[in-house]
Nucleic acid binder design. Structure first.
Length: 388
DNA sequence: CGAGTTTGACCGGCGC
DNA sequence: GCGCCGGTCAAACTCG
């Protein structure tokens, strides 16, 4: 009897164990299926992200061309006796992968949401926001507010001229420098007017450390004490691409103003920029393009830098736009009356955290009366010696 | 050891 | 032509 009972017990236990194993297997299969599904979605999202990033990079490389075209056309209007260039609101929306005139319901919904958010922001509009530093960049034509004139462009990466100067057999240093200059000229060709030197964009920023990171990687190649300013000026070139012609100079503004640094940018990048760099690059390119096209009126530039004091000068044939982030220059009357209905995409780098070891200077520029919010995060990243 | 910085020398533009 | 001065080069140096 005892043997029979124990064998029955073993049988039941084995059945229970089998059932348990079976349920575990089923659960495992379900989990595997879920993981596969998540993997599949992940792949799709990766693909989508890479597509969007590629389009975004190519797009921002061509923004300044569009601005120039816009200004050329406005110049033509001036020539036809219109003479109302300053009243021409210019605002280009950048759309990724959208058709030209068809606005989907989703987009309309997004626009509604944006408009609602903005109206909330307008209600909450505080002095704090007004004093914030903004470097947002957005262009769209408001000639006809009823028409969505958002432009779609065929974006192609600018063909990077593969000069490969380093492979040339240069017999002397002079030859090397000549080759560099020729290369630089070619890169700038088409962006510079013949009589003028490279357009410069100066940004005066209030910070303790001059190493403002605009998203690019910079390599210091020199330091000089200028005659007019006893404090040393540092020279950097973009190290993101071997042939990138972009240079920048960083100099303390003066002995009495040690908290502010003047950063001067020169040239255009010949490579895609990271998110953090696009705002500054686009804004400075826009300013440079406007300046080169002759439309350097304060009204035109106020579209790009609505809250800040800026000036335009031409010294030593260097057309220069100076943007002063130390002097908020908010003037509601200067701002264009942007219709809410024409809102579209704006870019934000706020979701791109700076390296943990870097200080972040956040110029969270909110335009209190404008329907768009753009942010520009400048963080300290470039390695510099302490005395600068 | 490689990448980045420092710093004196050099080059070229510009004014006189 | 000469000198001044801003910009760049490149060897030496530093740092991780």
């Amino acid at each position: 009897m005892k043997n029979k009972k124990s064998s029955e017990g073993v049988y039941i236990v084995s059945i229970v164990f089998f059932c348990y194993l079976h349920s575990q297997e089923v659960e495992l299969d379900e989990t595997k299926a879920k993981v596969d599904k998540v993997k599949e979605e992940n792949e799709k999202l990766k693909l989508l992200l890479s597509t969007v990033l590629a389009e975004y990079n190519s797009l921002q490389m061509h923004v300044y061309n569009v601005i120039r075209q816009q200004n050329e056309s406005s110049m033509k209007l001036d020539g036809n006796g219109n003479g109302n260039n300053e009243d021409l609101d210019v605002d280009i929306s950048l759309r990724l992968g959208r058709s030209e005139h068809k606005i989907s319901k989703k987009e309309e919904e997004v626009r509604k949401i944006i408009a609602e958010n903005i109206s909330i922001e307008k209600k909450e509009g505080s002095e704090k926001k007004r004093s914030a530093h903004g470097l947002g960049f957005r262009i769209q034509s408001f000639e006809d507010p009823n028409t969505d004139q958002t432009m779609k462009f065929d974006y192609h990466f600018r063909e990077v001229k593969n000069k490969d100067v380093e492979n040339k057999c240069l017999s002397s240093r002079k030859d090397f420098k000549t080759a560099r200059n020729e290369e630089h000229h070619e890169v700038l060709e088409g962006h510079e007017q013949p009589g003028l030197k490279k357009t410069r964009v100066c940004v005066k920023a209030p910070c303790d450390d001059p190493s403002i990171n605009d998203g690019c990687q910079w390599r210091k190649y020199g330091q000089k004490t200028a005659k007019t300013n006893p404090l040393p000026r540092s020279y950097y070139r973009c190290s993101m691409s071997s042939n990138c012609p972009v240079r920048k100079q960083v100099q303390r503004c003066g002995e009495d103003d040690t908290s502010a640094y003047m950063t001067t940018y020169e040239g255009n990048h010949d490579h895609p920029l990271p998110m953090e760099a696009t705002h500054m690059a686009a804004g400075t390119s826009a300013a440079a393009s406007l300046l080169q096209s002759g439309s350097s009126s304060s009204a035109s530039l106020s579209h790009f830098f609505p809250f800040h004091h800026f000036s335009v000068s031409t010294t030593n044939s260097h057309p220069t736009v100076t943007l002063d982030l130390t002097q908020p220059n908010y003037d509601p009357n200067q701002l264009p009356n942007h219709p809410l209905s024409s809102s579209s995409l704006s870019f934000s780098s706020s979701d791109h955290p700076s390296p943990s070891n870097s200080h972040t200077l956040s110029f969270s520029g909110l335009r209190p009366q404008a329907p768009f919010t753009t942010y520009s995060h400048l963080s300290h990243q470039t390695r510099l010696s302490g005395q600068q």
